[in-house]
């Protein structure tokens, strides 16, 4: 299924002058295989991971992960705890050396050129890591001379919007306030790329909402490229245009959310009939569970015509297909029952 590219630049300034052309393309590997020129172009994108492997002792925390973000993309990296997200993010930030593979930011090796690359990258970490005795204003004073540009008034405005006192030591702020300060610090130098590692972990609903609103505002104003790891799947569904699922160090999925949701359906048959199993198999299911009086099937690569044919058939009478939310897809692919539902799934979901 191909999707049309949206060229927003034809719309005159008032809609959003800074939302750049976002080329929604197919999976990274496919495009890279298309031509070496394409591979080189992709490597120059804001973020590109090339077969990154991180090994601790005998275990591969990250196993041959490749993904890439074009300019303006918002990518959500999902995975259960321990799936390797943090290790991957550390490699992408140049803070950890991958055992194999490369992490590229703007076409340059993240480990070797970290110091210069960070001038264009805003980072919001999972745990607040600013020194606890320092106030937000002092943190801004530390960071300001390090970047080519710094929006000091914007920083102060954000603190006011978040209701964060600029002169209270960081350690005495609430978790939500600390997250807001981290975001404000990350956005102040107008970075081209934002990397957020579970930024809303532990935040209440209000703080979480305020955080994403601020992020969206920045996206609207400047079209920043964003890599986001999170468990907040509801937010991902709305904000991200692309998602990847990391399980056991491997990238199970890497595609646009729109396409993902079109591909997956939950089909249930009220009462299974003799020919139902075979017919269901023909729909390319991902797994099937029999519960009491009905059969539930998770179907990948859903095809509307085929399903309608199935519905019309005697074994498929009363069949219903319902779409899944991203959360349901995620749980189905990586949850406890995932091995049942996904016999073809690789790796240990844990």
């Amino acid at each position: 299924m191909s999707l049309t590219a949206v060229s927003v630049s034809t719309i005159a300034g008032s809609i959003s002058p800074k939302v750049p052309a976002a080329a929604f393309t197919n999976a990274h590997a496919g495009a890279a295989a298309a031509s070496p020129g394409a591979a080189a172009r992709i490597a120059a994108w804001p973020l590109a991971a090339e077969a990154i492997t991180v090994r601790y002792g005998r275990r591969n925390a990250v196993d041959g992960v490749s993904l890439s973000l074009p300019e303006g993309a918002v990518y959500a990296l999902l995975g259960r705890n321990g799936a390797g997200k943090s290790s991957l993010v550390r490699c992408l930030l140049g803070q950890q050396r991958a055992t194999a593979g490369r992490a590229l930011l703007f076409g340059r090796d993240a480990w070797r050129h970290r110091a210069t690359l960070m001038a264009q990258v805003g980072v919001v970490p999972e745990q607040p890591d600013a020194p606890p005795g320092v106030t937000a204003r002092q943190l801004a004073r530390l960071c300001r001379p390090l970047y080519p540009c710094w929006d000091g008034s914007g920083f102060e405005a954000r603190l006011r919007r978040f209701d964060v006192p600029a002169d209270r030591p960081f350690g005495r702020l609430s978790k939500g306030q600390q997250g807001h300060v981290a975001l404000a610090l990350a956005l102040a130098p107008h970075p081209r790329l934002l990397i957020l590692d579970d930024p809303t972990l532990g935040l209440d609903a209000v703080a979480r909402r305020a955080f994403f609103e601020e992020l969206i505002g920045d996206l609207a104003d400047r079209g920043t490229t964003v890599l986001l790891t999170t468990h907040d799947l509801a937010a991902v569904e709305r904000i991200a245009d692309r998602a990847g699922i990391l399980a056991g160090g491997r990238l199970l999925l890497d595609e646009e959310i729109e396409r993902l949701k079109q591909r997956f359906r939950h089909i249930w048959l009220p009462s299974p009939t003799p020919g139902a199993d075979a017919a269901l198999d023909a729909l390319s299911p991902r797994g099937r569970v029999r519960r009491n009086w009905r059969v539930e099937t998770l179907v990948e690569n859903f095809d509307e015509e085929r399903f309608q044919a199935f519905q019309a058939s005697p074994s498929g009478a009363g069949a219903e297909a319902s779409p899944l939310t991203l959360e349901e897809i995620f749980v189905a692919l990586t949850g406890e029952g995932s091995r049942q539902l996904a016999p073809g799934a690789e790796g240990d979901p844990r």
Binding site: V6, V8, I11, L219
Partner: peptide
């Protein structure tokens, strides 16, 4: 505006922009 609607709906502005583009 795209920005306002995106914030109001808590969705990616590019998504809103795409819808507005088609509507335009």
């Amino acid at each position: 505006s795209v920005r306002e609607l995106a914030r109001g709906l808590a969705v990616n502005p590019a998504t809103v922009a795409k819808a507005y583009q088609r509507l335009a």
